[in-house]
């Protein structure tokens, strides 16, 4: 992208001092919008491509300050408590008056230049630590023009760029941005396409194809396996994952297990969504270690 106006997009967070998403101190840009609907997702507020208003009922005291502030007249009280109405435009005015901090705006339109300015703020820390910028989400490839623009603007600065992706994207739309990445964290959620569709809403054909393309293009990658007890932790799936990674992507590509946790569950009611895995127990440290050992026995390189 070299012609026309710089793009803009919907971003739901820009986190400074991010230290878990690649080397050094990083600024992570969370893109809104995701083609998958993983049942365990800990960022469900990132699914929709549009900004939306969240309301945390456990913090709401029903004081009604938001009602008086609402410009659309839609934040009216329900029977027992205040809720977000469909007509809400996510203007955010009610946030400023809520004394409980019960309201949160998920996502806002941002011009690329504004995003770059935000990245610039921590440049001194990125430079000193060998860090850089991580594109995360949601799914960054769901806004390919913005991703490519940012990657091109940031690519020459010497700060390593990192992408976190679910793999469900158009190769031709994202090829250029991918080529600028120093590292791609690539999720492999299930090797069986039907099971994948049951858990995430889409099959895995395109995902596996894109994984192989990234490997073939020589872009450094690291596979991430979200470990969901009873859903993808069976020996067969582990074996197929290890085989695919070592066989199709390369023997040196590491697999990192992301153990299932419930720390995003409270956000589901805030956006009016239902949590499908209610009652599922988080992965214990022991179980995590056992699974890592199993993968290693299958010849995979596990990053612990």
């Amino acid at each position: 992208m070299t012609q026309g106006d710089p793009p803009s997009g919907v971003i739901f967070d820009i986190q400074r001092w991010s230290t878990q998403d690649g080397p050094g101190i990083r600024t992570t840009i969370f893109f809104k919008g995701c083609p998958l609907r993983c049942a365990w997702c800990c960022n469900p507020e990132a699914w929709s491509l549009q900004p939306q208003l969240g309301l945390f009922q456990d913090k709401c005291h029903g004081c009604g300050a938001c009602l008086r502030a609402c410009t659309q007249g839609v934040a009216r009280p329900a029977a027992a408590h205040i809720r977000v109405e469909a007509a809400c435009t996510a203007c955010g005015v009610c946030l400023t008056v809520c004394p409980q901090g019960a309201r949160q705006l998920f996502g806002q339109h941002m011009a690329a230049e504004a995003i770059l300015a935000e990245v610039e703020r921590d440049r001194v820390f990125q430079r000193r630590s060998g860090g850089g910028v991580t594109f995360s989400g949601g799914e960054p490839t769901s806004q390919p023009e913005l991703l490519q623009y940012l990657a091109e603007r940031l690519g020459g600065s010497g700060s390593p760029l990192v992408l976190e992706t679910c793999g469900q994207f158009s190769w031709s739309d994202n090829k250029a941005a991918l080529g600028l990445m120093a590292l791609v964290y690539f999720d492999l959620k299930h090797m069986d396409s039907a099971a994948h569709e049951r858990l995430t809403g889409v099959g895995n054909a395109l995902i596996l194809e894109n994984a192989a393309r990234i490997a073939a293009a020589g872009i450094p990658m690291s596979v991430r396996l979200p470990l969901i007890p009873g859903h993808n932790d069976d020996n067969e799936n582990l074996a197929r994952t290890a085989l695919f990674v070592t066989g199709q992507l390369g023997a040196t590509v590491p697999i990192e297990i992301l153990p299932y946790h419930v720390l995003g569950r409270h956000k589901y009611p805030a956006i009016g969504a239902r949590y499908a895995l209610e009652g599922l127990v988080p992965v214990s440290a022991d179980f995590l270690a056992q699974t890592q050992t199993k993968l290693e026995a299958l010849g995979a390189r596990v990053s612990r």
Binding site: D21, L258, L263, H266
Partner: peptide
């Protein structure tokens, strides 16, 4: 606080998560 691979402001988390 480090939640799970990311950091969050403790007070913005739900009581369950805070307890965890």
């Amino acid at each position: 606080v480090r939640v799970a691979g990311y950091s969050a402001r403790f007070v913005t988390l739900s009581k369950d998560v805070q307890n965890a």
